[in-house]
Amino acid sequence: MPIPPARIVVEDLHKTYRIATRAATSPRPWPFARRAWRTIEALRGVSFVIEPGTITGLIGPNGAGKSTAIKILSGILRPSAGHVSVGGLVPWADRIRHVGRIGVVFGQRSQLWWDLPVEGGFALLRDIYRVPPDRYRARRDRLVDTLGLRDILDQPVRQLSLGQRMRAELAAALLHAPPLLILDEPTIGLDAPSKLAVRAFVQELNRTEGTTVLLTTHDMHDIEALAGRVIVIGHGRVLADSPFETLRATTLSGRRLTAEFDGPAPPLLLPDGVTPLSQGGQVLELGFDPARIAAADLIRALASAADMHGVVLSDVSITRPSIEEVISRFYERHGAAG
């Protein structure tokens, strides 16, 4: 029974925690010390809609509330107020039915049993999710092949490298063919090839099976490679919800141009929209806003200035600000950093 794709609707979600500030700070001696409580608002009115078959990135600085949002969407936490529907189910109220239709991978913790071999863990999940044996075999074989797990099936999970474990976790989360996959920091701590493998797999899964993917990460390259859309959360609110390119364009649209000459860099009357960044010997670095001056015009101006001073513009490179820069600038602008 293929499960229908799930539309996610989140409306005005609030979550308030009460945290005990320990009695150690109390001036009164035990046992008369009274526990003091502090309230923390993790979410203060988060709303968004996610259409089936899309990949959405949920990002934000540490402590912004994204893990809380993920936990509520996964059905393991109740919000203080607000409404959530995933494919028509309320995660915390219809928990058992809901979690049967989603796959969740937490990069920081293993959901496979530490002491069981990978294959044993899969078999346990088959029984937990009540996957019929023939469907399970076909599904497992496909996942094992695509994720390259054949050689580690009989190894206990605790012996796996982090990269191997994460691939096993992905397979484990997908054995019951959920239409929604939630990834919480799936690439944390992975080396570059493992990160690429995880990204490629998620992309392929989304393309071939139409699986809806919701992912949180601090690695902006995950977002760049995977997510068509990013939702930025800070201070428990949605700060931005747009395609990543829009976020980049509105946050840090500038380009960086590095020009190299075969002699000393010529003096240049800077056109409008260009700022000098650094100048040293034969290299000149400029920042420019492509909305105000076209790259071609700037390069032409550089080349003619070089001509006039008898040097040759030997190399030019134009880079966009790194995605980390974009996002740090965005957090800064919203006072959401840290």
């Binding site: 936490l77 058992i96 039915r97 979690v99 049967g100 913790r109 959901q111 937990i128 999710y129 009540r130």
Partner: peptide, 14 residues
Amino acid sequence: RSGAVAHDLLRPVD
């Protein structure tokens, strides 16, 4: 201790 206790709730079981 690690805060993962709620993760048992990710399984469709009582």
